[in-house]
Design a protein around this nucleic acid. Sequence first.
DNA 1: TTATAATGTTTAATATGATAAACAATAATG
DNA 2: CATTATTGTTTATCATATTAAACATTATAA
Lengths: 111, 111
Amino acid sequence: MFNILNIMTKKSAVLLPKTTHILETVGDQIKLARLRRKLSGEMVAERAGIGRNTLISIEQGKPTVSIGHYLNVLKVLGLEKDLLALAKDDDLGRKLQDAGLSTKERAPKKN
Amino acid sequence: MFNILNIMTKKSAVLLPKTTHILETVGDQIKLARLRRKLSGEMVAERAGIGRNTLISIEQGKPTVSIGHYLNVLKVLGLEKDLLALAKDDDLGRKLQDAGLSTKERAPKKN
DNA sequence: TTATAATGTTTAATATGATAAACAATAATG
DNA sequence: CATTATTGTTTATCATATTAAACATTATAA
């Protein structure tokens, strides 16, 4: 509590309220998908190769869990392809690209 | 190499080939979204509050990066709502639910 | 063609993610 | 109602995720 050193050396992700809400919503959706399949947390955790506590962290929307564990849980539920939606339909990006044209392998140099 | 103890005590996610490919594809999509915005890796990493190496891990599809860091990178690109797609359209789940009916707060007891 | 910024790799240090275990609370059954 | 499996919390331990720094490569733009 009030540990300035902890704040300055923090390595875990700091989320804004809106971002936190997104993660919690995803956690709820994953839990609902599990319950629809009538699977206990212990069963899903075991099949995903993770501990029970880590699955609970996912379902509660904790930002610390690795994307690999996330993905393996989605796979147990048959939902792993949902991840492909990330940065897939990049409308803004394509408009920016149309404006600037071309797509390079690297970002432009700042001169 | 050939460290049986490392295998038995592994905590990082073990992915199957198909799952690995999904993560790598997402990494490519994130990198493409960054380049369309003409942002350097250093700039995105700084805005997302992570190190440059961690962003590289994300763009290369490494399974170790936390969902929180992932989410903050997506936010820098204006794509954070994409995460809401995870376990959202659970077609199979809804069919299973229709078959079994009801939705409980917990998985059924196994007796 | 040349200069250089962007990207990628490796290494070492350390904060932390993931875990099991023990426990408490409670929803789901009979 | 009574029983109990599921869910959730806390704690301690340890493997590892994250980082900065130094360096190498190469695409970019003049």
